[in-house]
């Protein structure tokens, strides 16, 4: 076992991990942050997406020790300081961008990363950016809508393009 230290959702955390411990495992089992989900074993589904040093990564495809010293943000760290949902989270609720909720944390984290890079994406850009996040419930319609709305754009106008 090796000791690993990183900053997760603004707090410094330290834990004992094996070489093979994945970041997702450290978050879920080590820290009890079970909002980060595991939906596949081939790095495709994106349910495990978190931010590492501000970048979206698939936490099931990164070793915990590779994140030593990094700043990690998970779905549990996305709310506003007062505990209310952040703009992107709120937009997912407002536009019914989730059903079973399982892909949702990864979807929100990827969407937040997109908006950080590209504050006013087009519909096509949203769809392309989310290609690494699989949702089986929504047919993506309301997810794309939620992301566009969170970017402050008029959704019907964009959708009609």
């Amino acid at each position: 076992m090796t000791t690993v230290t990183m900053t997760v959702n603004g707090k410094t955390v330290t834990g004992e991990v094996e070489g093979r411990t994945l970041l997702s495992g450290f978050l879920r089992e080590g820290l009890g942050l079970t909002g980060t989900h595991i939906g596949c074993d081939t790095s495709q589904c994106g349910a495990c997406v978190v931010h590492v040093d501000g970048k979206a990564v698939k936490s099931c495809t990164m070793f915990a020790l590779d994140a030593a010293g990094a700043t990690v943000k998970t779905i549990e760290g996305m709310a506003n300081a007062d505990g209310s949902l952040s703009v992107i989270q709120q937009s997912f609720q407002d536009h019914h961008g989730l059903q079973c909720g399982f892909c949702t944390p990864g979807m929100v984290m990827s969407s937040a990363a997109l908006l950080a890079e590209n504050p006013k994406p087009t519909e096509a850009e949203v769809r392309h950016y989310l290609e690494g996040n699989i949702c089986r419930c929504t047919g993506y319609h309301n997810i794309v809508k939620a992301v566009l709305a969170a970017s402050g754009q008029d959704v019907p106008a964009v959708a009609a393009e």
């Binding site: 994106g46 970048k55 979206a56 990564v57 698939k58 495809t61 990827s110 997109l114 290609e131 690494g132």
Partner: peptide
């Protein structure tokens, strides 16, 4: 290549 999260790693 891949998707945005893959491209970050």
């Amino acid at each position: 290549i891949g998707d945005p999260a893959v491209r970050n790693r």
